[in-house]
Amino acid sequence: MKTTGRWTPLILLGAVIVLMVLPFVVARGGDFAGADGKAGEVIAKVNPDYVPWFTPLWEPNSETATMIFSVQAAIGAGLLAFGFGYWVGRRKGSEQSARDQRGTDAQAETLLTAGPGDS
């Protein structure tokens, strides 16, 4: 069973992009705030008497928070890209050197079979 053709990665990536863009079409005008914040609103609805009893020791403002989240994602993506780039290069390199090696072997064989005695 051959499951991963040439186009598989592109199809997978395309599907992810569609899933990320679709919300902006379906839920046009939504604020796209975090679902955890939405849960906070639900808490306020089911239990109006609830008062949070603890505040974060340090809280970045929302723009800084967005920035830190982006940095987090960027570091992750960077590491992933570096890793795969390195591995792809390493495999190409080892294939190349295997080819070179075969070339050298073939040459050596020719030299051996066509030894000085034949000429």
Binding site: P23, A27, G30, G34, D36, G37
Partner: peptide, 10 residues
């Protein structure tokens, strides 16, 4: 990541 409900999650 944005979602179809008009909010976001991870």
């Amino acid at each position: 990541m944005p979602s179809v409900t008009g909010s976001s999650s991870h």
